[in-house]
Simulated assay, not measured.
Amino acid sequence: MKFEIYRSGDSLLSLQWRWRLVAANGEVVADSAEGYVSKFDCEYSIGLVRSTSQSTPIVDVSG
């Protein structure tokens, strides 16, 4: 798997940094829920995702 960082938006004023996690088969398995103004903030968000581990709890909020 790999993280890809890219910019999206309609104009230079609206360009935002985003990330997506891509599996070996090319399928996107996760993406940033929001855009980031700076590349640093986007990379920081990737770091937060990467820091999760098997000890991260799974919580069923379906009721």
Rank of each mutant, 00 (worst) to 15 (best):
V28I: 10
N25F: 01
L12E: 04
Y6R: 03
L15K: 08
A33W: 06
G35W: 00
S14E: 05
I58M: 15
L15M: 11
A30I: 02
Q16M: 09
S55K: 10
E34N: 10
K39G: 05
A24I: 07
L21M: 11
P57F: 14
F3P: 00
F3D: 02
Y6D: 03
I46V: 11
A33I: 07
V49I: 13
A30S: 12
V49Y: 15
R18M: 07
V61M: 14
D60Q: 13
C42Y: 00
L12W: 08
C42K: 00
R18A: 06
S38C: 06
S51V: 05
L21A: 07
V59N: 13
L21I: 04
V59C: 12
S62N: 15
E43P: 00
M1C: 11
N25P: 00
F3E: 03
S45W: 02
R18W: 03
Y6A: 03
G9E: 00
G47C: 06
M1L: 08
E27H: 14
I46K: 02
L48K: 12
L12V: 06
Q54W: 15
C42L: 05
L21F: 11
L13E: 10
K2A: 08
F3C: 02
G35M: 02
S11T: 14
G26N: 07
R50S: 10
R50Y: 06
G63Y: 09
N25E: 10
S8E: 13
R7Y: 04
R20C: 03
I46G: 01
S62T: 15
D60H: 11
T52N: 13
T56N: 04
M1Y: 07
G63I: 08
A30E: 12
L15N: 02
K39V: 08
L48F: 11
S38N: 08
G63V: 15
S32F: 00
L12Q: 07
S11E: 09
R20F: 02
C42T: 01
L12T: 06
S38P: 01
L21Q: 05
G35V: 01
Q54P: 08
K2I: 06
P57W: 04
Y36C: 05
S53K: 05
V37H: 09
N25Y: 03
L48E: 15
R20K: 09
R50M: 12
R7C: 10
Q16R: 12
V22C: 02
R50I: 13
Y6V: 02
L15S: 05
E27Q: 10
Y36D: 03
A24E: 13
E4Y: 05
L12R: 15
V22F: 03
S51D: 14
L21H: 08
A23T: 06
E27D: 08
M1R: 09
C42R: 00
R20S: 04
M1H: 11
A24W: 06
F3G: 00
D41V: 01
W17F: 14
S45G: 06
P57V: 08
A24H: 15
